[in-house]
Design a protein around this nucleic acid. Structure first.
Lengths: 222, 222
DNA sequence: CCTACCGATCGGTAGG
DNA sequence: CCTACCGATCGGTAGG
């Protein structure tokens, strides 16, 4: 048998290729992410991560130092992944908006944000973040700003296109955006966090009502 | 030395008095509650609970069976304690309300609920509930109903006194109450859950804006 | 990079 | 009711 002959481009031993190393790194992070999000910090052992990622514990510790550091890397990576689709919100019309155009736009934006917020991945991320917030206090504020904060800023920019906040009673676009998001997410995000199955048929009506109330178009009949 | 002479009404040994037993039971539950809420389920060992409550582990296991059962008892007790002050909401006017009276009433109710929701005890309870929701799925729905659900029903009853929902665009008092609560809690409850210090000076303005938007009185200047 | 181990800690129980 | 222990599992490391 010839020693260390590559098959499918893989080395049979020795130092891995640079791209092979990068691939393993990514795979390790993916595996660790899935396990942490599914079973929490305490429920995921370094032994299990090593076994599932096809490496040994010493490699884990050589790369990340300790369990906390690996967990932090997983959280940062996950928040990045989660925040990315929100950039679609930035591709909204840049010109001024009439109120009549704002209503359907807010419905679309609201539905989009709600759908993004109740995916199993998003819920698992927020849950594990919540449960470990006490142990990683420096990160909670950062991630809250990258999550909720980023959405608020996007929506506030939208609102400024349609509303003259200097003449509004609220006078603060970010507060208004915050209230809009609160209306849209509300109970559904709480329930998702508790693992309660969400009644998807209620989403449409909730969004519609939320937008109407927000724009002062209901709920009291006129 | 005379054996087993009571001092301060306590027995020096043997079977405890009935009231003494009840007192120990309550003390044990209080101690376990504080530890579970401060350090989470995995972060609290039965050894630590036994030591802090001044008893031995065998007594713990004789009374509760295992750690899960003790944890469940703690959660139920805590949710009961938390839901009690909400009954004050039931002592609202029973007669019909004019819209003009509804605004200050909603401000008071909203502030009260928000204040109750961001106390350290309430936050800790929700956090530990969230982090263990996956392990205790049967309980999550029950406790959600006893918490958020109870508040929604209270507020819905209030709204029905002032609004004719059959002629409203929303047409559902519970959805309206749900949206009102969402507005009031919103970002602040999320931040509290993540352990982020809350800017208390922002509470007043948020409540006012929430009520105005909810009642269709803002935010667009008229 | 793997195996095998370290000390510590856990939930739960036997024995008296 | 207390002490002392059980097997299991953990995070992390030595040794080669």
């Amino acid at each position: 048998m010839a020693a260390a002959v590559a098959r499918d481009g893989k080395h049979a031993g020795g130092r891995p290729t640079r791209e092979e190393a990068a691939r393993r790194e990514e795979r390790l992070l993916d595996v660790a992410t899935a396990m942490f999000l599914d079973n929490g910090y305490d429920g995921t052992s370094m032994d299990a991560i090593a076994a599932a990622s096809g490496t040994g514990k010493p490699s884990l510790y050589a790369r990340y130092g300790d369990k906390r550091a690996l967990f932090l890397a997983v959280l940062r990576h996950s928040v990045d992944l989660w925040a990315r689709p929100l950039s679609e919100l930035g591709q909204c019309p840049q010109h001024a908006l009439r109120l009549a155009d704002l209503e359907p736009l807010l419905e679309r934006v609201g539905r989009h944000i709600l759908e993004c917020s109740i995916t199993p991945e998003s819920v698992a991320l927020k849950r594990v973040l919540t449960s470990q917030a006490g142990q990683f206090p420096e990160l909670a504020a950062t991630l809250q700003d990258a999550g909720w904060g980023a959405i608020v800023r996007h929506v506030a920019a939208l609102l400024r296109l349609a509303v003259d906040f200097e003449r509004s009673d609220v006078a603060d676009a970010e507060l208004a955006a915050d209230l809009f998001l609160s209306l849209v997410l509300g109970r559904l995000s709480h329930e998702a966090l508790l693992g309660i199955e969400i009644d998807r048929s209620a989403i449409g009506g909730r969004i519609t009502a939320a937008v109407k109330i927000f724009l002062g178009l209901g709920f009291v009949a006129r």
